[in-house]
Computed example of a mutant assay.
Amino acid sequence: MITRRELSYPPHLQLATLALVAGRSPAELGLRRWRITDHAAVLGHGPEVFAAASERLLTWQAHAHAGVRVERHGPLARLHFGPTTSSCLIIHEERTPTRTVLVYGTLPAHVESGEEAFLVTRAPDGTVTGRVIAFSRHAWWLAKVGGPVARFVQRVVNRRYVAGMCPGNFP
């Protein structure tokens, strides 16, 4: 069984994505040398939109919308994107009446090293927002060589994840 000890980033950074969401700065979390990506968008309004967006997130439809195929076996997930397969460990899942969260950390067989959090939230006024926030470093040699291209692809994929949370979008 794979455990958190096998993650490809330091243990003290586990769940740092949620600390970023809570307002802590990258510097105070020890993330100065990590690349932070953060994208959020309004998905709609009301409990029906929240429920549908949460379902799309937790059933990997948001990932499919971004062109990422996911195989999940318990806490282990393998992400297939283009010619790459990246392994990660689900380290946090949460579902409340106003917030749905999925966080995974990278394992050594991932093109990046770091953590990514996916959130769907419903504000008191009913506004539903989708968000992806991550900290990472390139781990795969090709991502290191093609750094600017890899960062561009990551930004595009993150935007597509959020768009894929929207109930009106289908892969």
Rank of each mutant, 00 (worst) to 15 (best):
M1V: 14
S8D: 15
Y9E: 15
P10I: 08
H12E: 15
H12N: 14
H12M: 11
L13E: 07
Q14N: 13
Q14R: 14
L15H: 02
A16R: 10
T17F: 00
L18D: 11
L18R: 10
L18I: 10
L18F: 05
A19D: 15
L20F: 08
V21T: 06
V21R: 07
A22I: 13
G23F: 04
G23M: 07
R24P: 00
S25K: 08
P26C: 06
E28Q: 12
L31M: 08
R33W: 00
R35N: 02
R35Y: 03
T37N: 14
H39M: 07
H39R: 00
A40W: 08
L43H: 00
L43F: 01
H45V: 01
H45Q: 11
G46L: 07
E48Q: 13
V49H: 00
V49K: 01
F50M: 11
A51E: 14
A51V: 11
S54W: 11
S54Y: 07
L57V: 05
T59D: 14
T59G: 08
Q61K: 09
H63A: 15
H63L: 14
A66Y: 02
A66E: 13
G67D: 13
V70F: 09
E71T: 08
E71N: 03
E71D: 10
R72H: 06
R72A: 09
R72C: 12
H73I: 13
P75C: 06
L76W: 10
R78I: 05
R78G: 02
L79T: 03
L79V: 01
H80P: 05
F81A: 04
G82A: 09
G82P: 03
S86I: 13
C88G: 14
I90N: 12
I91W: 06
R95M: 12
T98K: 03
V101C: 01
V101L: 11
L102G: 01
L102M: 08
L102S: 05
L102V: 03
Y104C: 13
G105D: 10
A109M: 11
A109D: 15
A109Q: 13
A109E: 15
V111R: 02
E116H: 13
F118S: 00
R122S: 10
R122L: 12
R122K: 02
P124W: 04
P124S: 09
D125W: 10
T127C: 02
V128Q: 04
A134Q: 04
F135T: 01
K144D: 15
V145Q: 06
G147Q: 14
P148M: 09
V149Q: 05
R151C: 10
F152E: 13
Q154C: 14
R155A: 12
V156T: 08
N158R: 10
R160H: 09
G164S: 10
C166N: 14
P167C: 01
G168D: 14
N169H: 02
P171Q: 01
